[in-house]
Design a protein around this nucleic acid. Structure first.
Lengths: 143, 143
DNA sequence: AAGCAGTCTAGAATTATTCTAATCTTATGG
DNA sequence: CCATAAGATTAGAATAATTCTAGACTGCTT
């Protein structure tokens, strides 16, 4: 954050802090650092490990427990979205808008699909008095 | 299998054994027992744990390692299909045909969607010389 | 400035899955 | 048939990922 040499912050600390407060989270030092990594750059697909190493390599000292806390609370508050590929591969997506993914089976990488390249012609009604909270489409390609 | 009182096998041992041999798996005692649970009843959504307890409660003695082996080899051979919901919830589906799912966030249960109730109007081309190996649609409902 | 609720941390604990290496089984070929 | 080799199974150890714990700390309100 302001503590180190951040050349091209795309979001000021004030804006980030507000973003956190908006969803009811206190802008603590660690959360600010993680929010900076997660929210002030473009859309990204992140894992607990990748966030952890990115943070530590930037000189930000957070425990792994805090990484998990942050990922979960951010997700619960709608700042992130979780995408699960298989039992041991799950990503957090910084893009929370309706969109879908390619999954590359070989590399294990995830990639956004251009929104207008997928279209659901028919979506079933939710059973009973339930409502649909989300539709996920994952297209697996063998590359 | 034939060792115990199986009242209403919906698939004879011979048929099951052939099914295994067809995909290059030897019909061992354990695999037969698991294949019976997995393949000779209707379409089901199963976890490692649920398969394990179902097997043991039927008096079939298999180690957990064998459960995982079976689930993975069956999946690799196309007898099962894995569906991952979130980092710690993943199911094996005995229905390997193209179809999609409702996921009930409250109960954690999965349910097939009638095939003609979902329709993808547009699917993107796979990048490069890659090809699409599978399309998964999971519709989350808040019930 | 003080206090409380919320947050952070290291390390222990838990959970799920995979590995190991010894033993056993199935399919085969003589 | 029997011997053999490749393939399977197993218990238990090992690993990996995530969560828990309890004490220290910090942002926010007054």
């Amino acid at each position: 954050m302001t503590t180190v040499d951040q050349k091209k912050l795309e979001m000021s600390d004030a804006v980030l802090a507000d973003k956190l407060r908006e969803v009811g989270l206190r802008p603590t030092r660690q959360r600010m650092a993680l929010a900076d990594i997660l929210l002030s750059q473009g859309k990204r697909h992140i894992t607990a490990e990748s966030l952890y190493s990115e943070a530590t390599s930037q000189g930000v000292n957070v425990s792994l427990a805090t990484i998990y806390n942050a990922l979960h609370t951010f997700t619960a508050k709608g700042l992130l979205r979780e995408i699960s590929i298989d039992s041991n591969r799950s990503y957090f997506d910084t893009n929370t808008e309706e969109h879908h993914h390619f999954y590359f089976e070989k590399s294990g990488k995830l990639e956004d699909i251009e929104p207008d390249h997928v279209k659901l012609a028919r979506v079933p009604d939710a059973p009973d008095g339930m409502s649909i909270s989300r539709v996920d489409v994952v297209i697996r390609v063998d590359g």
